Simulated scan of single mutants.
Amino acid sequence: MGQEEIVFCRGGGCTAKLGPGALAKVLEKIPKTKDPNLLIGYEGSDDAAVYRLTDDLAMVQTLDFFPPMVEDPYIFGQIAAANALSDIYAMGGDVKTALNIVCFPEAMDLNILGQILLGGSEKVREAGGVLAGGHSIADSDVKYGLSVTGTIHPDKVFANSGCKEGDLLILTKPLGVGIVCTASRMGEASDAAMDLAVRSMTSLNKYASEIVRRYRVHGCTDVTGFGFLGHLCEMLGDSYSALIYRDSIPFIPECEAYVEEFYLTAAAQRNRNHVGDKVEFAGCGFALEEILFDPQTSGGLLVSMDREDAAPALEEIRKLGLPCAIVGEIRPKEEKAVTVK
């Protein structure tokens, strides 16, 4: 794509999200909606809204869009769609319909837009959903994503804040895609690292979600722009703390070297500023800290599960082919929300 490649990908994905601190200040000023059928709204930092329609049927709604983080428009479309669809799976729901959200420069080749939409539509079909339309506007930069509607039983919703003391935490995808994409834009990422990052970002969380539904799940979220530690702190709230096993964290192997070369993101620093004082690192190097703060695009599910169920669930998840692990446990409330050691 020559010159257009530079314009197409300036660095995006979930690194483009507003910082969690700034977002929280805005949202706290918005009046809360009081409706007994709104089972989950935005006040709990959950991944999607859940609205009860009947005693045995609820609707799950979400939307997500962002600028490209890879040069290939087809792969970008796949990643953006997988990321948006993920919020339905993080709630334990099933995808039904999706609408495209498109921002595109009028002067750019429309074939590029066609490839983005093709990649997105294929992921919607893989999810078992129907692409039902969308909305587009002319913009100075490319942005793409989906508004997604799913369904779920009202009594089977995975809220992000339902974890219980003694639960084990499972992470279903490797961390580090933000670091790898940053290194790639500098021409320094290896083919192996980028291939694993792309495979992770384009993999639907549908399959991991379907597996964990067969077990006793108490809390679930997907790890995206606020990084592993940011989303974990949202899960813990003011009720619990977590011990994270530093040697069990799955991440793209080359990430440590890229951190040493300072291929970092501003979003990771925002995440550190927001929750860093809630975390105690014991014997952790700077590289692992950055990996845990790194914003993920289309990241894995972080599942708080009954201790006895974690090992058999992980055995099934491993068959999906991505690095995954039991990464920690839920503990009673301590001075620090998270201890990594």
Rank of each mutant, 00 (worst) to 15 (best):
G162W: 10
E106I: 13
L171P: 05
K206T: 10
K17T: 00
M186L: 13
S121E: 15
P253L: 08
L292Q: 06
I326Q: 02
N271I: 11
R318T: 13
F8A: 10
K29N: 12
V275Y: 10
L175R: 05
V7K: 15
S45H: 14
G283L: 06
N160V: 11
I79A: 09
P67T: 11
L236N: 02
I330H: 03
L110R: 14
L320Q: 03
C181T: 14
V198T: 10
T202Q: 01
T15A: 15
H153Y: 09
S140M: 06
C9W: 04
E188W: 09
T339W: 07
E315W: 00
L146T: 07
C324P: 01
G227R: 06
E4I: 15
C163P: 02
E290D: 09
T182V: 08
V223C: 09
I244A: 01
A107Q: 13
A189V: 05
T97I: 10
H231Q: 11
A208M: 03
M59R: 12
L236Y: 07
V157H: 02
D277T: 13
V303N: 05
D155G: 14
R246F: 09
Y42V: 14
L169K: 12
P31A: 04
D294M: 07
Q78R: 15
E5G: 13
L314W: 03
S209M: 13
V275S: 03
R318D: 00
V279R: 07
